[in-house]
Write a protein that binds this DNA or RNA. Structure first.
Lengths: 191, 191
DNA sequence: GCAAATTAATGATTTATTCAAG
DNA sequence: CTTGAATAAATCATTAATTTGC
């Protein structure tokens, strides 16, 4: 707004090097999401180095954090892509209970741990927790280095992973797979 | 599994950064409570990055979910505590970060954006309206050139330096920050 | 060397997601 | 099931780097 005569009317904040340095220092020191008070303080200090408003600080932290995460996700995705071809495919049955991961050594199958899913239970994934003390006779973990003494017998089609297919399991929505270097016209902004 | 004299014999799982990143990514994508099969797959993938067992994955998800909820609850509690500020106190001090920073001009904020939803209507239907140019009566930012009315109230450590020491101001102790990767980034245009 | 044209960075907005409360 | 609050993701838009032809 405010046409503001001839002189530079920067439509957006243009941070000075000092401001950027200070912001990055603060960020590196662990302040990722400043609250209003902190934004105020940062702003008033940075204003010594140039014109700045609170919203600039606020946006700076938002963007910086977001782009940090984005960068990390990209890197991660590349790594995962690298490993993806190492994996073989294998079919597995879908099991829904996570406590099958415990394999009680001898007996004691803890009947209350698997409280029979009602046919239309949405199973909101927040509340099951509670795990209820499975300890006692000792348990072994699948996939550990030791154990592995169980379940291979009764036609237990559970895990017995000889081969590991992994990635396609997860609902990776891959919002970060999107562009590969310059597909979206940044300058164009097709609107 | 012998204590292996020289090299570290960690009594507990010590996740690598890659493992943490992958786990967080999976979690963020919506898998909050993996079942046994999923744990198997995740484990075998993460084992490419370091020693890991299925129970580590299982516990990681348990703990992460729990701590997530705990964090949210704490935040929400704080928020509720200060919910009175609209009614009584007028200190915009220690609110969170986002909308406390906005000051709705005259609470005629977006009269047409939210056209009084009938009790069962989705109000996101007509979003082709393109937000209707919220400009004049939009919002203002604290700390701008115009409304520099805020100042440090009491509270807080408040370094309020006249000198420009900048860095000692903010409570930027980051003992709880663990990402040390090359997060500085900001490659070219750092200025 | 120098600007116009193009591309990459990044500031500023908008949209979708998430959790909890009513 | 809806709504409120906060935020992260996605997107838009503008500035700075850079390339390029002269």
């Amino acid at each position: 707004m405010s046409p503001a005569a001839g002189i530079t009317t920067p439509s957006r904040w243009c941070p000075t090097p000092e401001q950027v340095m200070i912001l990055e220092e603060i960020y590196r020191n662990g302040l990722k999401t400043p609250n209003a008070t902190q934004i105020q303080h940062i702003t008033s200090h940075l204003s010594l180095y140039g014109k700045i408003e609170g919203k600039n600080v606020f946006y700076w932290f938002q963007n910086h954090k977001a782009r940090d995460r984005q960068k990390l996700r990209r890197k991660l995705y590349k790594q995962l892509q690298q490993h993806h071809f190492l994996m073989k495919r294998h079919r597995f049955d879908e099991h829904n209970q996570f406590f099958q991961y415990f394999l009680p050594q001898h007996h004691q199958l803890v009947p209350q741990l698997l409280p029979l899913p009602s046919p239309s239970s949405h199973q909101r994934e927040g509340e099951e927790e509670a795990a209820t003390e499975v300890e006692g006779g000792g348990r072994t973990w699948l996939g550990g280095d030791e154990g592995r003494t169980v379940a291979e017998e009764d036609g237990e089609t559970t895990c017995r992973t000889g081969t590991l297919r992994t990635l396609e399991l997860f609902p990776v929505r891959a919002s970060w797979v999107e562009e590969e270097e310059g597909t979206s016209g940044n300058g164009g902004c097709g609107n």
